[in-house]
């Protein structure tokens, strides 16, 4: 139970960071904040020397200014800064800056930081890579699934799901098999109808909350056939339980009230029937608070 709670909380936390990054758009620069100081590439020569300052505040300011410039030309000075070895806060800020830049030019230095001994640095490096639109990225993110640190593995799994790395589905299943709970969400985002069936094999082996986080992704996708969605609902109906009932109820609520789509209507009917079959109260099964909130959302 403790494991379940921990994994779900972790997944939720990671989801937040990755989703925030994703919201900024993969391969797109961060939107310009009107409150930010106005600097341009012309100021590069003035800002870069500040990176060498012994004053950490000045270095941080320089990093922020380079982020505002938001051009690939700022990557080399940031890379040089990172390679020169910095206190944790500076390193993390520089990695965040590279994440915001989302420039393929930073892949090399970010790849180096995938082997940094500090977990937070590795995790930020993976998240920064996930923001870059480049064909090399999925393979790099897959490395994270092999990391000894669970938060890094989770970040990598979520990132693979975010970038739509369908070619990584197999390795995500392996990771899921090895206990990387975040892979459930990625699988839910990337898997096809066949993957749903494969995913379903984990039902009963993995915590229900984790499984529901993957099913939520499957059910929310438009590219998944309705028959497959029905199969999911029916499969969950077999599992039953308060958590499933709530999950299906929330899913039902997310569907349009009125629709001409026959398949959606049939799906709603199926949902209603399934929910009706599941008792409202728990029958002596204790459910952890984290999972009560709807699984690994």
């Amino acid at each position: 139970m403790l494991r379940q709670v921990t994994t779900m909380a972790l997944a939720a936390a990671l989801m937040g960071t990755v989703t925030a990054a994703a919201q900024r758009g993969r391969g797109r620069r961060a939107p310009v904040d009107p409150e930010q100081p106005r600097v341009s590439l012309r100021d590069l020569d003035r800002i870069v020397p500040k990176l060498q300052s012994p004053n950490p505040d000045e270095v941080r300011e320089a990093i922020d200014l380079l982020s505002v410039i938001d051009r690939p030309e700022v990557v080399p000075p940031l890379a040089e800064l990172l390679r020169a070895g910095q206190p944790d806060a500076i390193t993390d800020r520089a990695l965040e800056a590279l994440r915001g830049l989302a420039a393929p030019e930073s892949i090399e230095v970010l790849t180096e930081f995938l082997h940094h001994r500090r977990v937070a640095a590795r995790r930020r490096a993976y998240q920064a890579l996930a923001a870059i639109d480049d064909p090399r990225i999925p393979r790099l993110l897959e490395r994270g699934l092999r990391d000894s640190d669970r938060s890094v593995r989770g970040a990598a799994a979520l990132a693979l799901g975010e970038i739509g790395a369908r070619q990584s589905l197999d390795i995500l299943f392996r990771a899921f098999e090895r206990g990387v709970v975040e892979a459930a969400i990625a699988i839910g985002k990337l898997g096809d109808a066949a993957a749903i069936e494969r995913y379903g094999e984990f039902l009963g082996r993995e915590p229900l909350g984790v499984m529901l986080s993957g099913y939520r992704e499957f059910l929310g996708r438009r590219d998944i056939p309705h028959d497959s969605k029905k199969a999911i609902v029916e499969r969950l109906g077999e599992v039953a339980g308060v958590m499933v009932r709530r999950f299906l109820g929330e899913y039902l609520a997310s569907l349009p009230e009125r629709t001409r789509n026959r398949q959606i209507r049939e799906l709603k009917v199926l949902l209603q029937e399934t929910i009706a079959r599941i008792p409202e109260e728990a029958t002596g099964t204790r459910v952890a608070p984290a999972t009560e909130q709807g699984g690994a959302s």
Partner: peptide, 12 residues
């Protein structure tokens, strides 16, 4: 050198 430089200011 790379190792030492990378971690010389890091808390690791």
């Amino acid at each position: 050198r790379d190792f030492l430089v990378l971690y010389h200011a890091d808390s690791t």
